[in-house]
Simulated scan of single mutants.
Amino acid sequence: MSQPFESPDPSTPSAPSAPPAGDGAVPEEGLLSVDEVIDIVDEDDHVIGTSPRGEAYAQGLRHRCAFILARDPSGRIFVHRRTARKLVFPSLYDIFVGGVVGAGESYDATALREAEEELGVSGLPQPTRLFKFLFAPESGPGSWWSTVYEVRVDVPVRPQVEEVAWHDFLTEEELERRLTEWEFVPDGLDAYQRLARWRKEG
């Protein structure tokens, strides 16, 4: 599970005061989204069927996800810790909001829906699509096509308590420090590193 939380450096006034990541215990209500039906895709990202989300994860079926980097008007990045109820990577930190593409849904529709739902806002502009990649975890079955987006959030956020246990907007410098101190979800970390390379090459 995640590393024990270490207090932020007092010399950095704007550093977040995140809570401990916890032991990952799942509340009585159980895991989220197990029965949600999602599209299953092939190695070229063509839809070849559908499956309940829980079964897709258990069987390692390839599916689709949308990752949205949310920035406030100052350019700071929304960072959060996932709740223990999340079906994958519970209680870990994440740099993106987003989620799995539902059956018959487009990446773009998923990006806007998930951003508004997880941030607890409405009326966001359509997130800007940046690039797509196939993520395959180093351990465990399955892989997922992942499209990365960015969106600016000009209104106060009210993240879903079912999805987000803690949140803050961090500068890129603060985030770089936290990458070495907190345990982040592997797909989001991979997406963030790819985004840095994409911007450098672009």
Rank of each mutant, 00 (worst) to 15 (best):
Y192L: 14
G102E: 10
V185H: 01
E176P: 02
L31R: 13
L69R: 05
G24C: 04
L32D: 07
D108I: 09
R76K: 12
E181R: 12
A56T: 07
G49Q: 06
L170M: 07
R197A: 12
V88Q: 03
S11Y: 13
P13C: 00
L175V: 00
A18H: 04
A66T: 15
L32Y: 04
F5K: 12
G75S: 10
Q3W: 07
E118H: 05
Q3C: 04
E105R: 08
E174Y: 02
R158E: 15
Y107D: 10
D154I: 08
R158W: 08
G98W: 00
Q3E: 09
P8D: 00
T128Y: 00
L170F: 00
P159H: 06
F96M: 03
D35M: 03
A103E: 11
D9S: 07
E105D: 04
L69C: 03
R197F: 06
P20R: 12
K86H: 11
R85W: 03
Q160W: 02
R113V: 09
R177C: 11
F78I: 11
Q59F: 14
D9I: 02
R64S: 08
L112P: 01
W144C: 02
T147S: 14
K132S: 13
V164H: 03
E201I: 15
L112D: 01
S33E: 10
E116A: 05
M1S: 15
R197Q: 13
A191V: 15
T50D: 09
L92I: 01
S51H: 04
D9A: 01
A21K: 14
L175G: 06
C65N: 04
E29H: 10
Q126V: 15
G188Y: 06
A191L: 13
Y149D: 10
A56N: 02
G123R: 06
G120E: 07
E150C: 03
P8S: 07
R113I: 08
A66H: 01
L61A: 05
D94K: 00
E138K: 09
P137E: 10
E174A: 11
S106H: 11
V101N: 08
L130G: 07
A103Q: 10
S139Q: 15
A58T: 05
A15H: 07
F133R: 00
P16S: 09
V79T: 14
D187W: 01
A56V: 06
G188A: 00
I95K: 03
I40F: 12
P13Y: 02
H80C: 13
D39E: 12
D42W: 01
A109W: 08
Y192V: 04
D190N: 14
K200V: 07
T12P: 03
E163C: 15
E181L: 14
L170C: 09
L119A: 09
E29D: 11
T110E: 14
E114G: 04
R82N: 10
V151M: 07
V153D: 03
A103T: 00
F131T: 08
P52M: 06
D94E: 10
R64L: 10
H63G: 05
G202P: 00
S139V: 15
L31P: 03
W182R: 15
K200E: 13
R53S: 06
A18K: 00
S7G: 04
R178V: 09
L134R: 12
D42E: 00
F89D: 15
